[in-house]
Design a binder for these strands. Structure first.
Lengths: 130, 130
DNA sequence: GAATACTAGTCTCATTTGGAGACCTTTGCG
DNA sequence: CGCAAAGGTCTCCAAATGAGACTAGTATTC
């Protein structure tokens, strides 16, 4: 029985591969950093300005919002535009690549949604035996 | 033009919804915790014992490995079996739900793999303008 | 028979990361 | 004049993490 990963980690390792420097991990860090994911989802609602995003994400700190946005911009998932209107405004939007990435994330969200009941059951069971 | 999220965050918010306590976020935290993802991938290679996993993940600490495994077990993604063989061994394996979750994660990995070149270009560009 | 090492973890301590909120500069409005 | 809002940055403290020492029981080695 062939497994789901096809020994991917191992394959990488064989190719002489530094896990601490793995580019794929770096990309996945956008997912594994908690906020970037939610920022992308917010931006999925359309372009928004900094403070709008800030208000939209109820429990993020400005610091992390700024950092997440810069990281995402750096990797070409988000575009930052400065409009020099009267109070200079900055708007953020998804690039096509960002949209594509967001789509994948949403499949994960869907999975979580679907399986939530089963997970709650598992937690009950786990708590019970403790 | 309908966007990709369909205002999901907003919809949740409307339903009277505490983001800090969101069950879906809790599930996604398995992804957004960096190690659980890699642990799942390793387990994708088949059931393994604690120390095997530890050796397989080059840069994890025992502490985080133990914690990740417990979290995943708690949510029913991983099964822990104690064999009371001579040196009592513990083996970890994916549950069906774990496999299903891993499959989604792998689509993310594939995405990262595919888009890596574009991302590197974006980084160059970003670095250049700074 | 004693020493070594493997098993699966836990515990402690130092470093890193993140959250909360003050603060900055410029422009607009009352 | 004085406050508000724009987009952030900076500082300080709490929380999460990494490295690695340490545990107990058994098997193997010498």
């Amino acid at each position: 029985m062939r497994n789901t990963t096809d020994g991917r980690l191992e394959a990488w390792r064989i190719q002489g591969f530094d896990p601490a420097n793995c580019p794929v991990r770096q990309v996945l860090d956008h997912v594994s950093a908690k906020w970037p994911t939610l920022v992308l989802m917010e931006l999925g609602n359309g372009p928004q300005r900094f403070n709008a995003l800030f208000r939209g994400l109820p429990d993020i700190s400005k610091r992390m919002l700024a950092q997440s946005l810069r990281d995402l911009e750096r990797d070409g998932l988000v575009r930052r535009e400065v409009h020099d209107t009267k109070p200079p405004g900055v708007s953020y939007s998804l690039t096509p690549m960002g949209q594509s990435f967001l789509a994948r994330i949403l499949t994960l969200v869907d999975w979580a949604d679907e399986h939530m009941p089963a997970i709650l059951v598992a937690r009950e069971a786990f708590g019970a035996e403790a």
